[in-house]
Amino acid sequence: MSKVLIIGEQTGGVLGQAVGRVVACAKELNASEVVVALFGAGDLASAADAAAALDGVTRVVTVDNPANDHPLAALVAPQVVALAQQGGYSHVLGSNSSFGKDTLPRVAALLGVPQVTDIMLVLGERSFKRPTYAGNAIVTVEVAGDGVVCGTVRSASYPAVGNGDKAPVEAVSLDVALPSHTRYISQETSKSDRPDLQSAPKVVSGGRGVGSAENFKIIFSFADKIGAAVGASRAAVDAGFVPNEMQVGQTGKIIAPGLYVAVGISGAIQHLAGIKDAGTIVAINKDEEAPIFEVADLGLVGDLFQLLPELEKLV
């Protein structure tokens, strides 16, 4: 039987959408305990309630500390290590968010163990499948030794669990010296009322073919009409059409919406790595030879500036 500690994420008391997905993965580990740890400063109650309601979670621990106001990997990692050692956990998991990917390797190195990135399938308590080469080669790995298994869970591979019995919530204080070498300064987030790119059931993405930041309006307008989140290819982000948090692909967000509409995106392997688990992929591109058509379920060849307004009228 395994005992799993999950590094939960929350922002301003709102539980991160990926936590339910990590719990889904943890449930496959023949777990007797699945404990979600939340780190914050004074505003953890509602996130803790939401985590406690997730099906399969057996306990929630909250670590309230002014140093956790804006959780940073270098500060959270030693706290996770203390929890993992005190609780005798066999597994420590996080999501493949930027925070999870930043924190888990630090935790693993402090514990002296290797880490599994992007778990897409659990084969056994120490055996997993994960993607390499931008998803073009899937490897089965076994974690050698008998140390704690540390891993990040590929969110796109796991639908979130629903709600179940309410688990107990426990506030803990940790006697851990936290480093002063890393200090939060600020965060810039584009405010948007659109659905969250990572979890939206529909996503419309624009690429280099859109041509400019100004032209991206046509993507936003269509997305709003169908209630979709908006993403972008690396080319569109590099060209400054849209901000970095909209990038979908190997090094951006990896998503699994029911519907993915790629507009003016040629379909580099690095972009395809981010959308392989989408339910239906639609490609709109003027180049009928574009590689995106090789993976698209439905392709439409033509000028996006004509087709998108036309589609918007039709839906």
């Binding site: 290797p114 599994v116 055996s127 993607p131 390499t132 998803g135 073009n136 080669a137 899937i138 490897v139 089965t140 790995v141 076994e142 974690v143 050698a144 392989k276 992929i281 009928e288 058509f293 993976v295 698209a296 379920d297 439905l298 392709g299 439409l300 060849v301």
Partner: peptide, 18 residues
Amino acid sequence: LKVVKTEAPAARGGGRKV
């Protein structure tokens, strides 16, 4: 991590153009 197997990803079913 001991890599015990490497395989190609599941291919997506062939699509079509409309």
